[in-house]
C-alpha cells in the first residue's frame, strides 16, 4: 500500500472541504424536544411541498436551543429555536450580547401536560394539583405546620387515592415542561393546600416561599427525567406504582399502555385544552432570527408554512398528531408576514 497515495487522497479530501465550507442552503433548527415532533412533521412536509431542501431539526431542550440561537448571527448558528416556554430575559441578554437583536416570536399552538401511569397499575385516575404537591413537594403543610414532606403513600393525604408508594417521573430542569409543571401544578397545589400562606406566616419572603413551593423531594420519590418521554415510558413500565409526566400527543400515541389521570376533574383532550378547561397546558413557540431571513433560503417560507391553516390549523397534520391548535393563528400569521420582532432591551 502506498503511503504517498494515501496522503495525497487525504490532502485532496482536506482541500475539497476547505473550498466548499460555504453557503448553507438548508434551514437549521434546534431546541425543545416537545416541539421536535411537530417541527419534524412540518420539515418533512416542507421538503415534500417546496423546492427548498428539508430543514434540519435537532433536539436538546428549550434552554439549550435558545442558548445556541443566541450564540450569534451567521451561517454556523441556527436560524430557528424551538421552545416550549416563552423567551426569558436571561436568553434575551445573551442574544443581545452576541448581536442577535431582531427575534420573531411565533406561537404554534398549545400542548397539554398529562399525568399517566401503567394501564394495569394502581388506579391513578383523578388528581388535583394539591395531591401532586402533597406527594412531591419537598415541604408541605401537615396539621397546620410547615414540615419536610412525611408522606410515603398517596393515601396518606388523600384517602381517595391508592395506598401505594409515591414515585413520580418528572421532566428534568432543562426541559421547558418542567417550568409548566412547577407553575401550573406544584405552585397551584402549594397555594390550594395553604402551604404557601403558612410559609409566608413563618416569616419567609414571597420569593423564598415560591422557591420552597416548587422544590421537589428527590430521593428516588421524584425522579428527574432529562431524556425524552420514551425514557419516562420505560421507567413507568418498569415501575407499576410510578406516575409519569407526558405530553398529550405522546400519551395519545400510547393509549394501549398508559392510563391518564384527570386534573381537577377535567380529562386532558385536545378539546378541553383548546377550551381552556384542562389546567395544565402551555403554549409552544419557535423563534426566528430575522437577520437570517433572505440570507438562508427558506427561513421565512418555512415559518409561514409551519403556521399555515393547512398545517397548524385544527384539521392539519399537527392537530392530527396531538397539537392543540391556536385559536389566534391568524394573528400569528400576520405577525410573521410582517416580520414583527420582539421589543427587547
Amino acid at each position: 500500500m502506498s503511503f504517498l497515495k494515501l496522503t495525497a487522497s487525504t490532502l485532496a479530501v482536506a482541500a475539497v472541504s476547505a473550498t466548499s465550507a460555504a453557503a448553507r442552503d438548508n434551514v437549521q433548527i434546534a431546541g425543545s424536544s416537545t416541539v421536535l415532533p411537530y417541527a419534524s412533521i412540518v420539515a418533512e412536509a416542507f421538503g415534500d411541498n417546496f423546492d427548498f431542501p428539508t430543514p434540519v431539526v435537532e433536539s436538546g431542550g428549550s434552554s439549550a436551543g435558545l442558548k445556541r440561537f443566541c450564540e450569534g448571527v451567521g451561517e454556523n448558528t441556527i436560524d430557528i429555536a424551538n421552545s416550549s416556554r416563552p423567551i426569558r430575559q436571561s436568553d434575551i441578554d445573551l442574544c443581545l450580547e452576541n448581536g442577535v437583536t431582531d427575534i420573531i416570536e411565533v406561537r404554534i399552538g398549545y400542548d397539554g401536560i398529562v399525568f399517566a401511569s401503567q394501564i394495569d397499575g394502581p388506579d391513578y385516575s383523578a388528581f388535583e394539583p394539591a395531591d401532586i404537591f402533597n406527594a412531591l413537594g419537598a415541604t408541605v403543610l401537615v396539621d397546620g405546620e410547615v414540615v419536610a414532606n412525611p408522606h410515603t403513600q398517596w393515601a396518606d393525604f388523600n384517602a381517595d387515592l391508592p395506598a401505594e408508594d409515591i414515585v413520580a417521573f418528572i421532566p428534568g430542569t432543562k426541559h421547558g415542561t418542567r417550568e409548566v409543571f412547577e407553575d401550573k401544578v406544584l405552585m397551584v397545589g402549594c397555594e390550594e393546600t395553604g402551604a404557601f400562606d403558612a410559609m409566608i406566616a413563618t416569616g419567609m419572603s414571597e420569593d423564598d416561599a415560591e422557591d420552597a413551593c416548587i422544590e421537589v423531594r428527590g430521593n428516588g420519590i421524584t425522579v428527574d427525567i432529562d431524556g425524552d418521554y420514551t425514557e419516562t415510558l420505560a421507567r413507568i413500565q418498569a415501575n407499576p406504582n410510578g406516575v409519569g409526566v407526558f405530553g398529550l400527543a405522546f400519551y395519545e400515541n400510547n393509549t394501549d399502555t398508559l392510563q391518564v389521570a384527570t386534573m381537577s376533574g377535567v380529562e386532558p383532550t385536545t378539546e378541553t385544552i383548546a377550551a381552556g378547561d384542562y389546567p395544565v397546558s402551555r403554549p409552544l413557540f419557535f423563534f426566528i432570527k430575522q437577520a437570517h431571513i433572505g440570507v438562508i433560503p427558506g427561513v421565512k417560507e418555512f415559518a409561514q408554512f409551519f403556521i399555515a391553516n393547512e398545517v397548524a390549523g385544527p384539521d392539519g397534520p399537527l392537530a392530527q398528531y396531538g397539537l392543540v391548535s391556536d385559536p389566534e393563528l391568524a394573528a400569528t400569521q400576520a405577525a410573521v408576514e410582517a416580520e414583527e420582532t420582539l421589543e427587547i432591551q
Binding site: 466548499s20 417541527a39 434540519v56 431539526v57 435537532e58
Partner: peptide
C-alpha cells in the same frame, strides 16, 4: 448536530456527501 430530524435527503455528490447535513 447529527441527531434529530436530519437524514432527510440524499447527497447530490461527493462534496455534498461530506458537507450537507
Amino acid at each position: 448536530g447529527m441527531v434529530g430530524f436530519v437524514a432527510r435527503e440524499y447527497p447530490d455528490g461527493v462534496v455534498s456527501g461530506f458537507m450537507d447535513p
